[in-house]
Design a protein around this nucleic acid. Structure first.
Lengths: 127, 127
DNA sequence: CGGAATCCAATGGGATACTG
DNA sequence: CAGTATCCCATTGGATTCCG
């Protein structure tokens, strides 16, 4: 990981100004994680793991690290026995809420059209 | 809302309502393709290929097929010699424009914060 | 509990060559 | 021109094990 993002291997800025932000917000597993944190508030590692269907601890750790580095999630470590770690959405992460709402709204009004388009496409023997 | 121990195994789609639409709109290469089609209007395969930095014909074909199947892009085949094919955004695809604008707006106001968060994170030897 | 380390399988995407 | 076909490599993610 680190400085290199897989999706930006081909500088998308020229072809698509929204490329960088898509990398940050919509890379794999980020929306389920952000959504779960937003829906259930501050919670521990295992709670997150249980709520996000069958995600492995390795992948969850990777994604949480990225989200923490990007400032969208705040990690709090409590030096106890046993150790306790809590994750929550940051203020910056919370600022994505309207965008997610917008996305959900579009989905609500148009996902059925996508479905019908697919059925029509699949029904056409020319394809 | 209360936490139910009964539904420990949560379907990822349930865990994140925006999951399906993210798959459709923000899967790999789709935003550069949609953006280019929106910026330059109806255009041919090679034009698309040239404008989207170094995308291979194979991948471009795959993505265009998916976008066509999802009803976001319209493909028009002209049986000439040599053959001519044109792609354009559909009405459904165009309905994504406000969403993209919203995304660009968020990026414009917050991408620098992400950058600073990364620098702060990388500067901390604890990480 | 909250990970880290290791190994491995699947997949996506690049390069190249070819065709109607 | 607009793809298709083939090969191949890199990255991703899953499974498992181990540790402070």
């Amino acid at each position: 990981m680190g400085t290199k993002s897989a999706q930006t291997a081909v500088d998308p800025q020229l072809a698509c100004p929204v490329g960088p932000v898509v990398d940050i917000v919509f890379s794999r597993w980020t929306t389920p994680i952000l959504w779960t944190l937003h829906a259930h508030g501050r919670q521990r590692f295992v709670e997150l793991q249980r709520r996000i269907d069958a995600i492995t601890p390795k992948v969850l750790t990777q994604r949480l690290r990225q989200l923490e580095r990007d400032g969208l999630v705040v990690r709090t470590y409590h030096p106890e026995v046993p150790p306790r770690v809590e994750y929550e959405i940051s203020e910056l992460g919370l600022s994505l809420a309207p965008l997610f709402a917008h996305l959900a709204e579009w989905a609500d009004g148009n996902l059925d059209k996508v479905d019908r388009a697919r059925q029509a496409y699949d029904a056409d023997p020319a394809h």
